[in-house]
Nucleic acid binder design. Structure first.
Lengths: 233, 233
DNA sequence: AAGTGGTCTAGACCACCTT
DNA sequence: AGGTGGTCTAGACCACTTG
């Protein structure tokens, strides 16, 4: 006889997942209570709970107290992306990293930037433009606004030497972040610094961070032609 | 006296997180053992473990058996994206969804598609092009290849009525998915169907799915100008 | 009001990895 | 070889949410 080995939560997860995929539990269906599944499979309820937690996080099921566990009717593709420090990203590709400060000025917050940061009144902010290079070729053009009220330390940093990107990541923790991707036509500065041909489509990674309610920074990182962002799998 | 209420794992997580952010535990540092933290804070080790699990998933710490828990030296911005069925996405915006099949043909797999799917030899595949509309305006142009060896059912679907996107999501589970984003210049068909002006930059969401080792489908979803992908949360 | 998931505890054993 | 995180169990109580 095959030994009835102890079930791990991953075993349980795969069992449930298989049942969802083969429609034993169809989209919209309610699954048995954790405890019933535990009894059926012969493990503790905690183990089923752990499995369900994972399935829930994957977006396969939805759980509600009293409501029970349901197979999601409209499955979504869920993907997680890691956006590293630019220096790190370049170096991990085995390429040489360089960095150039383009400009650094105090300016009144423009309307679109206010919208991104969620503030109502313009204030003086540090506006930084910089170029990151990989093997001496333009890699990412960075257009950043830093709120000096929440982050006065940035004013003492020599941005010729260390990128704002790097300083902030190492020195300014955030509690909330908004990340979005979109495409733009190369134009103006981004074209001048990045574009190899007249008409290029560039991927923009826009990130905005807050600490509590206070805005820290918002940045548009415009990547050189050909750049892709891939999920962590 | 303030009542020493029971600590939840989220409390523990916030305590640890705060210590990481204020450098009590600096980047690269090794944290105390779970059990020591548990004793210090006055909770069970399991509770600390649950908190650490979350911090680890957020990318704030790295854990290794025997190696202990370390604060990640190079923090990354980690973001999770949900990519819904296109119909769903449009309808959730309160807009009218429509769909048009553009073409549907059996073709030999081209080299780039073979690369995406990870196959060595070309085989006949179903090549589908379609347009998704929101309020009668082009929304997403979809260029898809379906491996009919793993997914013969697609051949019986009337793609005039139901999009391959929708049918696959509801009928073909996958075990692995690759997702990536990049930008392209509107040209050829994508320009014809989506572009409002001559030179547009379009965001492409490329997804490839497998069941076990077998490829299912790969699709380039080219979004209309202005489209953004935003992280959950 | 009651059912279901969420969490905590205490103890035990396991598995992986560094030293 | 030993230390650390990973997991399982059993039981208890809590908290949310639905009927």
């Amino acid at each position: 006889m095959t030994a009835p080995l102890r079930l791990s939560w991953m075993d349980v997860r795969e069992t449930i997942r298989t049942r969802i995929l083969d429609r034993t539990y169809a989209p919209g269906d309610r699954l048995p209570r954790d405890e019933d599944i535990a009894q059926e499979l012969g493990c503790a309820r905690t183990t089923v709970h752990r499995a369900m937690q994972d399935l829930s996080q994957m977006g396969l099921v939805e759980r509600k107290r009293k409501g029970g566990t349901h197979v999601r009717a409209d499955p979504v593709t869920r993907a997680t992306f890691d956006i590293p420090i630019t220096r790190r990203e370049v170096e991990q590709q085995g390429r040489k990293y360089d960095y150039q400060l383009i400009s650094r000025e105090m300016e009144e917050t423009p309307i679109p930037v206010m919208a991104r940061l969620g503030i109502q009144q313009p204030v003086p902010m540090l506006h930084v433009k910089a170029l990151h290079l990989a093997d001496n070729r333009p890699f990412i053009f960075e257009d950043r606004w830093v709120d000096t009220r929440s982050t006065p330390g940035i004013l003492d940093v020599d941005l010729q030497v260390q990128s704002a990107n790097e300083w902030l990541v190492h020195n300014k923790p955030y509690s909330r972040v908004d990340v979005r991707f979109y495409a733009v036509i190369a134009q103006g500065e981004s074209a001048r610094y990045l574009a190899t041909s007249a008409e290029s489509a560039l991927l923009v990674i826009e990130r905005t961070t807050w600490i509590g309610q206070d805005p820290i920074t918002t940045v548009q990182s415009v990547a050189a032609p050909g750049y892709q962002v891939a999920a962590q799998n």
